[in-house]
Design a binder for these strands. Structure first.
Lengths: 260, 260
DNA sequence: TTGAATATATCCATAATATGGAATATTGAG
DNA sequence: CTCAATATTCCATATTATGGATATATTCAA
């Protein structure tokens, strides 16, 4: 008599995890978690304690309150250590940071967000640059983020923008238009003058699979003064070179070869 | 006819996650995940696709293979703030790194492991020092790790050492004895000369809750030459001062919490 | 290309599993 | 200390996950 797809328990566990992730710094009470997820307390308790025993969730200090657990840290770093995108992109990030002196980011898509997977600071890094490793922005807001969005299939772009409209508008920025995104695809990179932090500019190039699906983006942040038109060309050229490097390295792993 | 405690589905999902985390660099096939977890393929598929839709797991490139997903990075960041420990310890780490010039770590327990939550390098940091952020060592191996272990309840220590025996012995190190751990508790810090990297020494102090449970440890790594007996005293004093700072900050924050 | 072999995805009857109301224990505020 | 709020445990019930069988997709060799 049910209509769910057969993963109710898991769905609830994930909801719990998200609820705990959104909790204030010093944790949430079980009762609040249960309410937030709209599940009964005994059920929430069963799930939460199991998550706790796996380390995905932990108690805050001596209290009963829940917070995210350190196991998440290990898992995230394990995915980094494997020869995934992060490992393959790191040399490029380092080179770009050293050569440009600016701040370089590796962004990937995660649901409706773009997440910062890695960051390397050059000598002239602006302290105020936000993107920390693990940080996220809605797809469509920010240079790297818009770049990834631009290379997604058209219908997915629409869905994503619909889902992110309120968040993006709340930030005071306009939604990227189809024309803007087509322009990004046409020239192979995006360039953006930040309206939130005066004098800051961003450049980004996509990282694509052989099939053309966006794996992520390389983004670079600098002050406007450090990026006059002629230097911009040089920077973009460097980024495109590294982008090709990464794409080759990624597709070189046999597994990624094109089906069909 | 089973005897599990009512979380089979969740347990399997977690097993899947771990299996995928342990996978080689370019992901695992569904069939292998299923086998590793000893569950049937349809079940593995159902769980895996649900994990995928939440971003905890992703496909490698264009292939069908699974790897850990970017959502973990976001959660890991949030978990770092779990209990506020990282935020509260960072100023201390910075001070210690600047004042000592050495390499300072914040370690916390995660199951049978101690995980590096944060690291700050001083001017004299030894490149070869291993602990990356997110890196883990078995509880009982390494200065910070042994320190955390020493302050855990006696029976937990035994369980943990039993569970870690093979891993620790495989590293060529002896298991820490009860006497050694009692000594650490008695003097409030541990000191260890590395046998793996010649000339490297480590010092660590615990971070305890008001109830005496270990939240984690501050650890410092330096060359033997940089830590003669008299300087060691100074360093330990500095670390203990910062430790108290953190403990106060942590226990203070909880008082401010208002129930809804 | 083609077709065999292998892997992934879907279906659905069945029974094992998660569920949540009620009872009990613990915590924390006054 | 007392009481109310919260966490934890218990267990009969039926909702939910399960996995054998099957369909579809992908890979590989020739």
């Amino acid at each position: 008599m049910t209509r769910t797809s057969g993963t109710q328990a898991l769905e609830r566990a994930i909801a719990l995890l998200e609820a705990i992730a959104n909790a204030p710094e010093d944790g949430v009470k079980l009762a609040d978690v249960a309410e937030a997820c709209a599940i009964e307390q005994p059920t929430a308790h069963r799930i939460a304690t199991r998550l706790e025993s796996s380390g995905l969730v932990a108690r805050v200090g001596d209290s009963k309150r829940f917070c995210l657990g350190p196991r998440l840290f290990q898992l995230a770093m394990a995915s980094a250590e494997g020869g995934g995108l992060l490992g393959k992109a790191r040399p490029s990030l380092l080179r770009l940071a050293v050569m440009s002196g600016d701040c370089v980011f590796l962004m990937v898509r995660s649901g409706l967000d773009a997440v910062c997977l890695d960051r390397q600071d050059g000598d002239y890094t602006i302290r105020s640059l936000t993107g920390r490793i693990g940080g996220a922005t809605p797809l469509g807001l920010g240079t790297g983020s818009v770049t990834i969005l631009s290379y997604l299939p058209a219908e997915e772009r629409l869905e994503i923008l619909a889902g992110n409209r309120t968040r993006i508008e709340a930030s005071g920025h306009p939604l990227p238009t189809e024309e803007e995104m087509a322009a990004i695809r046409a020239c192979g990179h995006s360039y953006e003058v930040s309206t939130t932090i005066a004098g800051v500019v961003g450049v980004a190039v996509p990282i694509l699979t052989p099939k053309g699906r966006p794996l992520g983006a390389l983004a670079l942040g600098a002050t406007e003064a450090r990026l006059p038109a002629d230097r911009l060309d040089v920077i973009v050229a460097m980024m495109e070179k590294e982008r090709r490097e990464i794409e080759q390295s990624v597709s070189a792993s046999r597994v990624l070869l094109e089906p069909r």
